[in-house]
């Protein structure tokens, strides 16, 4: 067990980071190598100026306007999941460094910071996990089942696993943020520190699944994260 924990804490993170960055570079290269369509494939109505079109594409991307128009339950699920994910990513910044400037501006002490982080973490964790259950559930019903492939289930299960172990650490275990920060900073700056013992085994599962996701990310449909605006600009060319 010791050696497996060591492997996941100090060896595979570098493999995952390399696969993630290399994979994204590969994905972008594949897209670049494909010939662009030389004709206008515009959908209307569309704004006139190129800058306004970019703005239009960005607003569409972040509001999921199309889904809202055709399937409201799906919009609620997808929007809440993405919003939860974004909040969690922002929250995870605190595992490496801190929002020093923000705390100073708000004039919050250590206790207030901890309380806010805890509450925000609870909200974001629920916002992320509950829609995932819905999104997974609908894959088993009706016509969505016909169009689903194993990739769809795997990614949802992986995200759900990450959400459950993450929420476990938020709700049931007291994680020492300073321990965690020392560990992650150590990984980044090659000054290795021990894994946060306070988080228990949940941390190893959580961290391992995140690495798996990072490796799979560029080679799966998750690449929509980088492709959405590019694709939307084609429809506004």
């Amino acid at each position: 067990m010791e050696s497996i924990a060591f492997l996941f804490c100090f060896v595979t993170p570098y493999v995952a980071a390399a696969a993630f960055l290399g994979g994204i570079a590969y994905r972008l290269t594949v897209w670049r190598q494909r010939s662009p369509v030389p004709v206008h494939l515009s959908m209307f109505p569309r704004p006139e100026s190129p800058l306004a079109r970019l703005g239009h594409a960005l607003v569409d991307t972040f509001t999921l306007k199309g889904l809202w128009k055709v399937n409201k339950p799906l919009w609620v699920g997808a929007f809440a999941m993405h919003l939860g994910l974004l909040s969690l990513l922002l929250g995870h910044v605190r595992t490496v460094t801190d929002y020093y400037l923000l705390w100073e501006l708000l004039n919050w002490g250590e206790e207030q910071q901890a309380l806010f982080s805890h509450l925000a973490g609870i909200v974001a964790g629920v916002l992320f996990m509950v829609p995932l259950v819905y999104l997974l559930g609908r894959r088993f019903a009706g016509a969505v089942k016909w169009i689903s492939v194993p990739e769809d289930y795997l990614i949802l299960l992986l995200l759900l696993g990450i959400a459950i172990t993450g929420n476990h650490m938020r709700f049931l275990v007291e994680v020492d943020i300073h321990q965690l920060r020392a560990f992650l900073q150590g990984l980044i700056f090659f000054r290795w520190a021990p894994a946060p013992a306070s988080a228990g085994i949940s941390f190893i599962y959580h961290f391992a699944m995140v690495q798996l996701l990072m490796i799979y990310f560029p080679f799966s449909k998750l690449s929509h994260t980088i492709g959405t605006v590019l694709s939307k600009m084609v429809a506004r060319s």
Binding site: V30, P36, K221, S223, H224, G227, T228
Partner: peptide, 14 residues
């Protein structure tokens, strides 16, 4: 290029 996007990023949301 647009069809490659289609292949790669469609999440089959339905």
């Amino acid at each position: 290029r647009p069809l490659q996007y289609y292949q790669d990023i469609c999440v089959r949301c339905g």
